[in-house]
């Protein structure tokens, strides 16, 4: 168990280093010279002024040196200063991350509750009208992009019915919940179809296993058969998939944040890229990648706890 976990953590770190290099390279290669932007635009720009700016921000050094410099600072949790806002990037992130995390967490709770619930229900009532309604409904909800769903939801529940606020992220737990309901619902809607479909398929497969028939032939109550022999076995793949969808949402909040005027990391990233704000763009991307990798690693580490066969397979491999 321990060496396997150690290998996984080492893999996580290696992935992070590679990702940081790709991120830094991508932002570096983006069109436009940041020095021009930093010096205050093309108007009355002298070569001397440009050189000063370049030196000040280490932009005159070779690419690799710049990368190592940046990486070293990142490790000390010094993400630099925003070109645009002139604030510490760490402070900017600290202000933005909670909103995005709350949004993703809220959306995750929703799609796990309703997606997995619908999938299980569809699998256990396979072939009935409930199953068909669930498949049809989730397919419809998945075919609508999250920002379109967001606009629709805002128009109906925000503007017409006035049940939920349509902008801002709210104060306190209840306020946040209230404000984030519509954005979280519009994000969760897209995930519902894939989650409920895969859940349904996994549960149907788990229910078809021989040992389920054996359990039924042993006269256990149906509820016990479903809980301990069907759902228990479907758990590992369902959790893996939910983890992946949540991880993907971390980087996918941009559209919904824009629709609902939320100041999360998604909107921060878009602003930073548009404004050539390298330190912010790099930091946000690095954070998203880190979040993604941490979640997927956590799911991987949880897998052997749910299915002991995985552990042995890894030990043998």
């Amino acid at each position: 168990m321990f060496p396997a976990a150690g290998r996984q953590v080492a893999g996580l770190l290696a992935t992070l280093v590679v990702a940081s290099f790709v991120i830094f390279g991508a932002v570096y290669a983006a069109p436009g010279d940041p020095a021009v932007f930093l010096a205050g635009g093309r108007d009355d720009l002298t070569p001397e002024r440009l050189a000063v700016v370049r030196e000040q921000y280490h932009l005159d050094e070779p690419f690799l040196a710049q990368y190592l410099h940046w990486l070293g600072n990142c490790l000390r949790l010094d993400l630099g200063r925003s070109f645009q806002y002139n604030d510490e990037v760490v402070d900017l992130l600290a202000a933005r991350v909670p909103t995005t995390l709350a949004l993703v967490a809220y959306a995750t709770v929703l799609f796990v509750l309703f997606g997995v619930g619908a999938g299980v229900l569809g699998a256990l009532r396979r072939g009935t009208w409930a199953d068909s309604v669930l498949i049809g409904g989730t397919t419809l909800s998945a075919s609508v992009p999250s920002f379109v769903a967001g606009i629709g939801l805002a128009a109906i529940f925000g503007v017409q019915l006035g049940w939920f606020p349509v902008t801002g992220s709210g104060e306190g737990f209840a306020g946040t919940l209230h404000h984030l309901t519509l954005p979280a619902v519009s994000m969760a809607l897209g995930a519902l179809a894939v989650i409920s479909r895969v859940t349904r398929q996994t549960v149907v497969e788990a229910a078809g296993a021989d040992h389920v028939l054996v359990a039924r032939a042993s006269g256990f109550p149906e509820r016990q058969v479903v809980a301990r022999h069907v759902l228990r076995n479907a758990l590992a793949p369902i959790i893996t998939m939910c983890g992946l969808v949540t991880a993907g949402m971390l980087a996918g909040t941009v559209a919904v944040e824009t629709v609902f005027g939320l100041s999360g990391v998604g909107s921060l990233l878009v602003g930073a890229i548009n404004g050539h704000d390298f330190p912010v763009a790099q930091a946000v991307l690095l954070l998203m990648v880190t979040g993604y990798i941490v979640i997927t690693t956590a799911v991987d580490l949880a897998h052997p706890l749910l299915d002991a066969r995985v552990k042995t397979a890894r030990r043998v491999a």
């Binding site: 296993a209 040992h211 054996v214 359990a215 076995n233 749910l306």
Partner: peptide, 11 residues
């Protein structure tokens, strides 16, 4: 049953 491996829940 014929196949004990299939008769027991693997997890």
């Amino acid at each position: 049953h014929q196949d004990p491996r299939a008769a027991l829940n693997p997890v």
